Amino acid sequence: MVVGTDQRWESVLDGVVVYAQGALCTRLARGVVPSDGRVRVTGLPRTADAGSLRARVLGASDVRVTEARIETEAEPVGDGDRDALLREVERLRDACATARGRRQRQRALIDEVAALRPVPPQRRRDDPPHRTTPVEAWLELADFVDERLTGLHARLAELDEALRDVEHELSVAEDRFARASTAGTSAHVATTVCAVVTLDGVPAGGGAGDDVVELELEYGVPGAVWVPAYRLSCRQEDGDGRLLLRASVAQRTGEDWTGVRVALATADLRRRTDLPRLGSLRIGRSQPAPAPAGWREPPAGLADLFTAYDARSRQPSRPRAAGGAAAAAGPLPDGT
């Protein structure tokens, strides 16, 4: 069953960049953006890598791509002809049973004719001890049996050939019915790959009018490789030569590259390449190292140094004695 009812755009393969392993394909599609901004771009191969899909809008357009993903649509092959195939199988089964019945009756008739033998009459009392044998009758019976068996065997050969033809047609019809059945394997299901693209910037009142938007899709495919071949042509009396470079491209991506721009790259498409991190480089005279600061980090356990003092200060104070108060009010040791 086909999934999705979005607007479909046909795509054309525009260019291919073949790497050491794999290729990067570019497709172009054009159309009017619908009001919901969702379109399906058809024509992608089954080998397209879903993680490598990239989409962008060409030209100075206000429409931009917000989402792009690859979807696979499946549809059973010949699902509408299953009833006709079933009727054909049933008809051929009946024809095969009829042919087998005719062949069986013909074999029974052959056995019956082959069993014909001359039987002499029973001997009577008044018959002489030695009777003459009618040789002519025996020969006529033998000729009749041979002629009859020749015709019956010829008819049997025709019935055998007809039975083989009907059995072959029945096997072909049963195979077609098994392929068209929904209970068959997935190899008998027609699959198509498309890219679902969501576009933003469409006017709220409807579609994009008569403005046609051109969309570019880029995706990677495996199964492509190219091999270089070098040819150097030079003469002994000449001081220069001619170096010719040729490339042999082989691909099994499921796409037709006839008439498509092809470029070659020596890099590996599947190898991740990131920008290197460059270290800082200072140019100029060397500067003296800055003087160390006087501030230092406090030592570990500094907060626990005053724990006993804080606990002592939180205890309640005791009342002083009278003598102690008088002594406190007396003169100081220096006489003041």
Rank of each mutant, 00 (worst) to 15 (best):
A154I: 07
A265C: 15
V119K: 09
M1W: 07
P298N: 05
L159C: 02
R277C: 13
S313M: 15
G31S: 06
L139H: 15
E90W: 11
V135N: 08
V65Y: 09
P129E: 15
R318M: 07
R40I: 03
A108P: 05
P134W: 05
P118C: 04
A23G: 03
D238M: 09
G254E: 03
A55S: 12
E255D: 15
G51A: 10
A187L: 08
G15Y: 00
V65P: 06
V262H: 05
P128L: 12
A115T: 04
Q106C: 11
L243W: 08
V3W: 03
L281Y: 12
G151H: 13
P222G: 10
E140Y: 02
G324K: 11
D6W: 11
A224C: 15
E10A: 09
A137W: 11
S52K: 08
A293V: 12
D94F: 02
Q122M: 10
R87D: 13
T198H: 12
T66E: 15
Q315G: 09
L170V: 05
L86I: 02
Y19W: 07
Q287I: 13
D79I: 05
S186Y: 01
L58S: 14
V225G: 05
R176K: 12
R38W: 15
P292G: 08
R312Y: 03
D175F: 08
P288N: 05
G78S: 09
V113I: 15
G209P: 02
G209A: 05
V16F: 00
G205R: 11
R270W: 15
R105G: 11
L44Y: 03
T185I: 00
A23R: 01
L24Y: 06
A328H: 13
R46F: 10
C234I: 00
G201L: 04
L215Y: 08
T191C: 06
A183K: 05
G206I: 09
L243R: 09
A48R: 01
E161P: 00
A267V: 02
V249D: 02
P34T: 06
A162D: 11
L109N: 13
R124Y: 04
R272M: 08
V89M: 01
F177D: 01
D160I: 06
A50S: 13
D211Q: 14
M1L: 14
G330N: 04
